[in-house]
């Protein structure tokens, strides 16, 4: 049996998370097939041909598929799903949205947020905001998995993989939903999901102006992405897609700098696997210090400008 990897696209290109999905799929048995769904996705197809470890590429390129509709994506996946033992997609807003629908229609149980794959039937996943890990066994005939991208390394290399390319016929598509607006937060900074360095701010920043005036120059110096705690997002200091945590983005950059963030368990869930964690907080007892590699107790209004100027 083979593994079906469903790639996430961004505009018409492949998201880099496909490389972590391949690493995850390589821990299972059988060939890896890659499914690309969208409209005008020639670029993604060209990129897919350069990915190591892909035997077959399945493509559905159609004007009806430009908006990542979960109802439609589900029908496409179902048209081929029974040929596979495992179906893998990122545990991102994209993957979480449609894969449970696929699993339900197959009457199979989905495993969410997989952080380790021991073999084709044994997986590990975090529960309780990552406070605990469950080691589980599933022996169903098709196993849909959403993969926590930050827990796997990207597969390296790009040379022509000689994959067989198949254009799938379009199944009947339901007309249940339609995208009517998309407000993407455009930024020249690296993507929060894939950035090597992340500067993240919390309620301690005190205002939207302070959030931007203090953290942006620091992020610029470090070529870092910006992140935020839930409190900072709720207070309007930062847009929703900056949120790091149990219910936001789960990331593991090389360096995570937490500024004015107390370290609630829901926030730690999103960043505690970062390679190096720096915490700047005026409260010496802040929980964030318990997981920081480097703890600096001080007023962020003084520490952050000093740090920026000395870098």
């Amino acid at each position: 049996m083979a593994n079906l990897i469903i790639a996430e696209l961004e505009k018409s290109s492949l998201k880099s998370s496909v490389r972590q999905l391949i690493t995850a799929a390589n821990k299972l048995q059988g060939d890896n097939h890659l499914l690309l769904i969208g409209y005008q996705i020639g670029d993604a197809l060209a990129q897919a041909k350069q990915l190591p470890g892909i035997k077959k590429i399945l493509v559905v390129d159609n004007p009806a598929l430009g908006d990542e509709s979960p109802e439609k994506t589900t029908e496409i996946v179902l048209s081929i799903a029974t040929n596979y033992s495992h179906i893998l997609t990122p545990a991102s807003a994209f993957g979480k949205n449609f894969l449970p629908r696929v699993a339900a229609r197959l009457d199979m149980t989905q495993i969410s947020d997989v952080i380790a794959i021991q073999d084709a039937t044994h997986f590990s996943r975090p529960i309780y905001a990552g406070s605990l890990i469950a080691d589980i066994e599933v022996t169903e005939s098709i196993i849909p998995l959403t993969i926590r991208i930050s827990a796997f390394d990207a597969v390296m290399g790009d040379e022509d993989n000689q994959a067989e390319i198949t254009h799938l016929a379009l199944p009947d598509l339901p007309q249940l939903s339609q995208r009517i607006a998309l407000q993407l937060h455009e930024s020249s900074r690296p993507n929060l999901d894939s950035a090597k360095i992340v500067v993240s701010g919390g309620r301690g920043l005190g205002s939207e102006e302070n959030f931007h005036q203090l953290l942006e120059p620091l992020a610029d110096k470090l070529s870092a992405a910006l992140g935020a705690s839930r409190a900072a997002v709720d207070l309007g200091y930062a847009p929703n897609d900056y949120q790091v945590g149990q219910t936001g983005k789960i990331i593991a950059p090389q360096l995570y700098i937490a500024v004015g963030i107390s370290g609630a368990i829901q926030h730690l869930a999103g960043m505690k696997n970062s390679k190096c964690i720096v915490a700047i907080n005026k409260d010496p007892d802040a929980a964030i210090f318990s997981i920081a590699d480097y703890s600096l107790v001080g007023d962020l209004n003084e520490v952050v400008p000093e740090l920026t100027s000395k870098l």
């Binding site: 994209f94 939903s177 339609q178 995208r179 407000q183 993407l184 937060h185 929703n240 897609d241």
Partner: peptide
């Protein structure tokens, strides 16, 4: 709330 920002969908 999606990864890159906000999306509005019209659903039946």
């Amino acid at each position: 709330e999606i990864d890159g920002g906000l999306e509005t969908v019209h659903v039946s």
